[in-house]
Simulated scan of single mutants.
Amino acid sequence: MANMIIKKQLRSISLPSRSHPSTSGLEDALNKIKTITTGSSESILMGLAGLEELYNCMEDFLKMGSTQQVMSSGGSEFMEEMLDGSLRLMDICSVSRDLMVDTHEHVRGVQSCVRRKKVAGGGGDKLDVAVSSYVGFRKNMRKEAKKLLGSLKKINGGSRSCDNDHEDEHLVAVIDAMRGVISVSVVVLKSFLEFLSRPKSNIKSKLASVLKKKKDNHEATKNELETLDSAICGEISSLDDLQKELEEVEMSISGFERNLEGLFRRLIRTRASVLNIISH
């Protein structure tokens, strides 16, 4: 159900009401992201990678002389809106990246204890400590992700159509296209944060649900973190199974960490370009 809602949100993002040749690159990049159904780790990674590409297009777009001319001659309120939105997105991206770094450290800690226990047959106490630390961290991660979701709601302007009081159709197209970029950024990051903050349900029922999904080969909404939650709390007794789940989570987390870092750097460049336009 969440998958369908997010897909609908992506499809509902309006492209510029008045297209202009200068905005065609951004429109194409927006269309690519709108074809992604976010929900599973793989699709969220695709969405984050799509945002990196989108902001690369945005950077090229902001370097165009025609764009700088039309934005410096009007739309000052919109420029402030863009600066505010980019700052909030940067903060959310930075905290999210740090969460992935911390998750990576906790997962590696559990992995190390599992390997030692498999090889030496001991180290149960250290594994219990590592598991307890991970469980506590996951609880805090959910809380932090929910706070970031609240911050996303404060980002305004992404889905609004440009006011019609501007006579310059080029300016209208530019503003609408850039608002579309902010809007799709919010949707993709929302999907990622919901992936992190999904509430922990009853472990036994969750494990049954996970096993059923695997049996049905229903991977569209697979959440490796939830699966690991079940495994790490003892519902999957085999150390081999636990190690497999840890490896899957590590792969996903590494991808999130890498893409969030890339997106953060591109957001910095976009903000610098907007500030440069304002200053000139």
Rank of each mutant, 00 (worst) to 15 (best):
E167V: 04
V172E: 06
S191K: 15
S197G: 15
V188C: 12
I203Y: 02
D176H: 03
M178N: 05
H218K: 11
D165M: 01
D165N: 06
V187L: 14
L207I: 10
D216S: 08
H166Q: 02
L171F: 10
L189T: 06
H218Q: 08
F192T: 01
A220T: 13
F195C: 03
C233D: 07
I203L: 09
V187C: 12
L171H: 07
A177H: 06
L228M: 10
G234T: 01
N202L: 00
S209W: 14
V172K: 04
K190H: 15
D229C: 04
N223I: 04
A173R: 02
N217R: 15
S191T: 07
P199E: 12
L189R: 07
G234M: 07
N217K: 15
V172M: 07
K213E: 14
E226H: 05
E224G: 08
M178H: 06
I203N: 03
I175Y: 00
E167W: 03
R179Q: 02
I175T: 00
V186K: 15
V174H: 00
R179F: 08
H170E: 11
H170G: 02
F195M: 09
K214N: 13
A177Y: 07
N202S: 09
D168K: 04
K200Q: 13
A177C: 09
V188T: 13
S191M: 11
K212W: 03
G234N: 04
L211R: 10
